[in-house]
Design a protein around this nucleic acid. Structure first.
Length: 207
DNA sequence: TTATCGATCTAAGGCAGGTA
DNA sequence: TACCTGCCTTAGATCGATAA
């Protein structure tokens, strides 16, 4: 999670953000925040609106509404970003036990919960692995996001239903750098929008 | 330098028990 | 009864260490 140090009162760690200016949409403000405050000009993924926060008591400076957006990016894309990348725990709080100012702890937990629920139901829904990947890479990513180990066999069997082997010149592509038997490279099947029944079936198993 | 072996990894399939 | 799940086994492939 990328957090930033707020220099004005109340001081402390916050999620990146700013006020919406006259004539701006939320989308404009999100893009401007990424550009001006984080240093990301061209995000490969679109930020997703998650939740509105409108409790009049949430900010001592006055009545401030916040529109929480979520954007997931590979770590490499954040190499030059302004702020600190911090780990979160199982509950979606900062792993080092520090707290964010305002109600940003709740925002962080909500964002982590939403992201984990998406990774319960769809192979890499935020496309952090790009267009092609091995099952091992996919499982590592899902375990990282969910914060717990998964059953390898069941994960592979469930995910394969939503993946297609990557083919070049009629031959399946294999990843040679796994240290063992070359792993098959997969791409997402065209239809990865799962039905409610399929989503329940795809809920990932735990070790 | 080369061959061998063990460790490690993925892929695939079988099987028994559980469940809708 | 068909399907799903978890566990297990076997095979194939690579890498690094080690002996000849």
């Amino acid at each position: 999670m990328l957090v930033q140090q707020r220099s004005r009162s109340p001081r402390g760690l916050v999620l990146p953000g700013r006020f919406v200016r006259k004539g701006e949409t939320f989308a404009d403000a999100v893009r401007a925040t990424l550009s001006e405050k984080v240093g990301i000009e061209d995000a490969v993924a679109e930020p997703r609106l998650l939740k509105m926060y409108d409790d009049p008591r949430r900010d001592q400076r006055g009545w401030v509404m916040s529109a929480l957006h979520v954007l997931a990016l590979p770590v490499q894309a954040l190499a030059d970003a302004s702020g600190d990348l911090l780990a979160v725990d199982e509950a979606g709080r900062l792993a080092d036990r520090r707290h964010l100012v305002f109600d940003h702890d709740d925002m962080l937990a909500a964002a982590v919960q939403r992201m984990r629920s998406h990774y319960e139901a769809t192979p890499d829904p935020y496309r952090l692995l790009g267009n092609s990947f091995t099952l091992g890479q996919l499982r590592d990513l899902h375990e990282s996001v969910l914060g717990e180990p998964l059953l390898k066999d069941t994960f592979n069997r469930r995910m394969k239903g939503y993946l297609t082997e990557k083919m070049v010149k009629g031959e399946p592509v294999r990843e040679q750098e796994t240290g063992g038997r070359p792993a098959l490279v997969y791409v997402r099947s065209k239809d990865t929008e799962l039905s409610q029944r399929e989503r329940r079936r795809l809920l990932l198993p735990r070790r």
